[in-house]
């Protein structure tokens, strides 16, 4: 089996972001970057297949500046076999432009599975995986939280609002991974050392044309912290009202 996993390097989200002076990006100073969570589960999914069948080759593909090499190495440390950096100065926001670059790389690669995370934590569009599948003319199943493979067919579960969908598809296929499929393994130092010696090719990305761009970024107003709305059961009506109108969760 030959599996490609497309991953993205994203900033750690546990911080309060600042907007960079250019106004349409966050200030990257002091941010920690790592593999996007959904993508790490995609890597894990590939590695679990490899665990069962050691003849599996897992190739990591990531688009970005040279700093993505660190992220690719992390996936290699987890156990993937080799990596490809599709080099760009800056990752564009336009998912289709990225999808073209990835499709160009993956085309003719003989992959049985091409895995993506469901979406990236930073640009949060959740579009690239399905776009790549479409550009390659491959079957696509998105946002899966369960996967079974049997020969040349696979079955998957997708979470939908208020239920689940069970989907069947033939291989080769493109899948995007949702939460719940697995938890990513923690790379051991041994793996980190081994990853340093694994092949990592760097090629210029052949980005598609871009029609979507970020013109401005802003911080939404901070939500008022810790509002005690009242004491005792008499505060309940106001709480329910706020949940409906303000928080919109009811």
């Amino acid at each position: 089996m030959k599996i490609a996993v497309c991953i993205k390097r994203v900033p750690d989200m546990d911080v309060r972001f600042k907007i960079a002076p250019i106004g349409n990006a966050v200030d990257e100073a002091g941010l920690k970057f790592d593999i996007n969570d959904f993508d790490s589960w995609a890597v894990e999914a590939a590695l679990q297949i490899k665990d069962k069948d050691s003849a599996t080759e897992v190739v990591i593909v990531s688009l970005g500046s040279d700093s993505v090499q660190e992220t690719i190495r992390k996936a290699l440390a987890m156990g993937a076999d080799r990596g490809v950096e599709l080099k760009v100065a800056r990752i564009p926001f336009d998912g289709l432009a990225i999808a073209h670059a990835l499709a160009a790389e993956l085309k003719g690669g003989g992959f049985d599975l091409i895995l993506f995370g469901k979406q990236s934590a930073d640009s949060s569009n959740g579009a690239v995986g399905a776009m790549v599948g479409e550009l390659l003319g491959l079957p696509v199943v998105t946002a899966i939280s369960k996967l079974e493979l049997a020969g040349a067919t696979g079955s998957a579960k997708r979470e939908i609002e208020g239920g689940q969908e069970f989907v069947e598809f033939p291989l080769p296929a493109v899948l995007t991974i949702d939460q719940g499929l697995n938890t990513a393994r923690y790379p051991a130092l041994k793996g980190i050392m081994a990853a340093k010696k694994k092949p990592l090719d760097v090629r210029p990305a052949q980005l598609g044309e871009q029609s979507v761009s970020v013109t401005k970024m802003e911080l939404p107003p901070e939500r008022p912290a810790g509002r005690i709305i009242g004491e005792g059961a008499s505060a309940v009506p106001e709480l329910v009202g706020l949940l409906q109108t303000e928080a919109k969760v009811l």
Binding site: M13, F17, F93, S124, S211, V214, T215, L219, P220
Partner: peptide, 23 residues
């Protein structure tokens, strides 16, 4: 077409310009 789209798990709001026909 100008859209508002939350990024970074909702911690930042992006204004995005789309020029394709259609968007």
């Amino acid at each position: 077409v100008i859209v508002q789209h939350p990024v970074n798990i909702g911690k930042v709001m992006a204004t995005v310009k789309m020029t394709s026909q259609p968007a």
